[in-house]
């Protein structure tokens, strides 16, 4: 496990010793700020019966944050190592392939969670100006962060997979963006006239991340969502490990 933690620390220091980590966090904060300004304006004009956590996830900014930032976070994980020539030395170090994959995944996940920490502060600030303090409760905050973490895990695992496929970080980001966007489009059933009943509708609903996130933000924890995100994350990490192993077959 020591090797794993060493690799995680290496990943994190790579983020924070370069501009990448700060750029990602400031991008997340800017989009969060945009979103909160809109919510503040809306709540100041008209009361609403939805808790503030729910208000946030129905805006486009949340999904913009996920779609834009996770590929940037993960693009460097394998592709940058390959393009800078450090990949072989990493892979010939006395660590297992899955440890490398898990360390890169964990490093990106920690950066992702750090980027979301100010979100709690923003919510608290809005809560201070509310007519009712129950606009924000720690329980809904907890489930909201659970949802954020699960969806983030999936997107990061997809990003790691894309990065393991590519030699250039830019290509990795584009592949990752395409995969994430495709998955998200499955969720946005309201954009087009998709089947609204039958088994197709049920499958689409099962994958509907927007609906899942709304539930998390309302304080609802559903075992289906836990299984879906965990299993898909494991699946993409497994694929990534297999891609990383390819070099051994040559």
């Amino acid at each position: 496990m020591r090797a794993y933690f060493t690799l995680v620390a290496r990943e994190l220091s790579a983020y924070f010793a370069s501009m990448t980590g700060y750029l990602v966090i400031s991008m997340v904060l800017f989009l969060l700020g945009l979103s909160f300004s809109e919510i503040l304006h809306k709540l100041n004009v008209e009361p609403t019966d939805a808790p503030i956590t729910e208000q946030f996830f129905v805006t486009v900014y949340f999904w913009l944050i996920l779609v834009l930032t996770t590929p940037v976070m993960t693009m460097r994980s394998f592709a940058f190592e390959k393009s800078s020539g450090t990949y072989e030395s990493l892979m010939t170090a006395p660590v297992k392939d899955w440890q490398v994959v898990m360390a890169k995944f964990t490093g990106s996940q920690i950066l992702y969670l750090i980027a979301w920490v100010p979100f709690a502060g923003y919510l608290a600030v809005v809560g201070q100006y509310s007519n009712d303090m129950t606009i924000l409760t720690w329980r809904t905050m907890a489930t909201t962060f659970l949802g954020l973490s699960l969806i983030g895990s999936l997107f990061i695992s997809i990003g790691c997979f894309a990065s393991s496929l590519a030699r250039s970080p830019m290509v990795a980001a584009i592949v990752s963006y395409g995969l994430v966007m495709g998955l998200l489009l499955l969720s946005l059933r309201s954009l087009g006239e998709t089947p609204s009943k039958g088994w197709t509708a049920r499958v689409l609903q099962y994958f509907s991340m927007t609906e899942h996130m709304e539930d998390f933000a309302r304080g609802i924890v559903d075992t289906r969502y836990l299984v879906l995100y965990s299993s898909l994350t494991v699946f993409f990490l497994f694929l990534t490990t297999k891609i990383v192993e390819i070099r051994r077959w040559r």
């Binding site: 809904t140 289906r224 836990l226």
Partner: peptide
């Protein structure tokens, strides 16, 4: 996921 979709539990923590 098939099993999860058929046998699920929902907790409302509010």
């Amino acid at each position: 996921n098939y099993l999860a979709a058929r046998h699920f539990r929902i907790w409302d923590v509010t």
